[in-house]
């Protein structure tokens, strides 16, 4: 039971933080299919910084792990600027440019990981080895039944994510900036009338989504494989998109959707284990979260209200 909750949370929370970035971006009216690529580039930067620092110093410490998290945020944010340029400045079709960014990030990180491993570290590999993320146990709280499992041997990044998520929630719903982000998605002309620059607000929202995707990607790299390799692109970014669409672009409901995905994934593996099926069946278990998403979307898609201005390029002169 403990391991179910732990595994599910370790998967659901990074997904959640990526989805929050997506809510900012789509809330401001920019479709963001680029999350998949942004999380990969974020993880690449984090992995690279960790590998460089650890080879320089010859040791690994916990502070370096947190430093790599910061670098992954920077990397995700920088790459998001490229997407923002395409989607906002160059007025490219947002769906297409999102997919383009994904493809570019896959080929760019695969190329750079190979090339940098070769030229910096002299290895023929496309991986950056990472350390194990520190885990903590919160005393007393871990004795609470059921919920206590979450406080037992938990990755520190889960608490970091929760803290950031709370801040992001506050910013989006309780500050003037958050208000104008949401207004940009529904009625950009009104925001312009109020004297704010729509494209600037959208630009910042896209960069925020890149930063969030960077954290999420790095946490996936730490928790799932403890290395960065191009195999990080397995569709978690798309899963995050499904999560916030399913959560109706609201942060609270999105958390619920992410938890569903997290538990669906763990249960899929558990079923394979419990029935003592051969290892080939783990492929079937992997389809579980995707099928759950699809089925849930069938039932709930009718009720969704996307931001009204989603996907529309903002033209000042348009009425």
């Amino acid at each position: 039971m403990n391991s179910i909750i732990n595994d599910s949370m370790a998967f659901a929370l990074p997904l959640f933080i990526i989805a929050i970035g997506g809510i900012y971006c789509e809330g401001s009216g920019v479709i963001n299919l680029a999350l998949e690529g942004l999380l990969g580039v974020g993880a690449f930067f984090g992995g690279l910084s960790f590998a460089m620092i650890s080879t320089q110093l010859g040791t690994t410490t916990n502070s370096m792990i947190y430093l790599s998290l910061i670098f992954s945020m920077i990397g995700g944010g920088l790459f998001a600027i490229l997407y923002a340029l395409l989607a906002i400045r160059f007025k490219a079709n947002q769906v297409i440019s999102g997919v383009v960014i994904n493809m570019l990030s896959v080929s760019l990180t695969a190329f750079l990981a190979n090339q940098l491993n070769y030229s910096l570290f002299g290895q023929a590999s496309n991986k950056f080895m990472l350390a194990v993320f520190p885990r903590v146990t919160v005393p007393f709280l871990n004795k609470v039944p059921v919920i206590g499992a979450f406080f037992n041997e938990t990755y520190v990044f889960e608490y970091i994510i929760i803290a950031i998520a709370l801040i992001m929630w506050f910013v989006l719903y309780k500050t003037p900036y958050g208000m104008s982000v949401r207004a940009c998605g529904d009625n950009p002309q009104a925001v312009a009338t109020a004297g704010r620059d729509v494209n600037k607000i959208r630009f910042s929202a896209v960069i925020i989504s890149g930063i969030m995707a960077g954290i999420g990607g790095m946490c996936f790299a730490y928790s799932i494989s403890t290395n960065f390799s191009p195999s990080i692109y397995v569709g978690y970014g798309y899963l995050a998109i499904a999560a916030y669409i399913f959560g109706n672009y609201k942060i609270g409901q999105t958390l619920l959707a992410c938890l569903i995905f997290g538990f669906a994934r763990t249960f899929g593996y558990l079923i394979v284990q419990a029935l003592a099926l051969p290892s080939t069946y783990s492929d079937l278990a992997l389809t579980f979260p995707y099928i759950v998403t699809l089925v849930l979307l069938i039932f709930f898609s009718k009720n969704f209200t996307a931001p009204k201005g989603l996907g529309e390029v903002y033209e000042k002169s348009k009425r």
Partner: peptide, 27 residues
């Protein structure tokens, strides 16, 4: 019929088909 975003549906189907095919091949 269900007002589902075709991009999300396509992506989910991509992964479902991919894993099921790999199950069929491996088994």
């Amino acid at each position: 019929r269900f007002n589902m975003n075709e991009v999300i549906v396509s992506i989910m189907l991509n992964y479902i088909i991919n894993y099921i095919a790999s199950f069929v091949i491996n088994s």
